[in-house]
């Protein structure tokens, strides 16, 4: 919830734009008649989900297949475990961001907005590939900012969950970190009476221990 500063008056335009329309659309995500339509059931990660529900997980996986379509040389969405990676990312977000992400996933899945905007009475996960692509194109090109925002948020989540994996590196030609650079056993200095090891960050020069000559308030 946006908390305005003391004395500030929200404008009517701002309320209509962000409050009424945005609130109604987000509310549709988790309620209403057509929301009761079932989602496709998908196999869950062996070690379970940390934050997403099975339904939300199914939407992420379906999204990933559309947003990251099969291409020669690339590992599949399943091979990279995009759904599981996305679940782990969401689990680390601020509680308010978790809530919004879940709302967005259910808004995309919910048959009611899909019916209202595209005359499709099916949930996203049960649509054909062409229908799913059409829905995503509608979100991406929508005149409603909230839908474009939703598209941007979900696309970023899915893309990060896929391209974070080293399995994708050969396909994009990324060689990864240069070997022999990172030292997993490098000393970690915390002071406490222990002498600081000499390294690139240390600097010993008498001229640099002069006191500051700050101004006087």
């Amino acid at each position: 919830m946006y908390l305005p500063p003391p004395g500030a008056k929200p404008t009517r335009r701002g309320f209509l734009k962000k409050g009424l329309l945005g609130g109604a659309l987000m509310a549709i995500g988790g309620s209403a008649f057509l929301a009761t339509r079932k989602s496709v059931e998908v196999e869950l990660p062996g070690d379970g989900l940390k934050e997403l529900s099975p339904r939300e997980y199914a939407v992420v996986v379906a999204l990933a297949w559309r947003m990251l379509p099969k291409r020669e040389g690339y590992p599949s969405v399943d091979a990279v475990e995009v759904g599981k990676n996305a679940d782990r990312i969401v689990a680390l977000l601020d509680p308010t961001a978790v809530k919004e992400t879940k709302q967005l996933l259910l808004l995309l899945e919910n048959a009611l907005p899909n019916f209202l905007f595209g005359r499709r009475a099916s949930t996203f996960t049960k649509m054909s590939t062409d229908e799913q692509e059409a829905v995503l194109a509608e979100w991406r090109t929508s005149s409603i900012t909230l839908r474009r925002t939703g598209f941007t948020a979900l696309r970023s989540l899915v893309a990060a969950a896929y391209f974070q994996s080293p399995l994708t590196w050969p396909a994009v030609g990324y060689p990864g970190p240069l070997p022999g650079i990172h030292d997993p056993n490098a000393p970690v200095w915390k002071g406490g009476g222990v002498e600081r090891p000499i390294g690139n960050g240390t600097f010993r020069e008498e001229a640099l221990v002069a006191p500051v000559d700050g101004g006087t308030p």
Binding site: R66, M67, L68, P69, R71, G73, Y74, E133, L136, A137, R140, R155, S156, A159, A160, Y162, F163, Q164, T168, W169, A171, V172, G173, Y174
Partner: peptide, 25 residues
């Protein structure tokens, strides 16, 4: 230009994303 950050910033549909990521180098 690293792959994960680049993938979240580039735009377009799924096919455009994959095509562009293939040209990352």
């Amino acid at each position: 230009v690293h792959p994960m950050l680049a993938s979240t910033v580039i735009t377009g549909d799924g096919a455009q994303t994959m095509e562009l990521m293939s040209k990352l180098r």
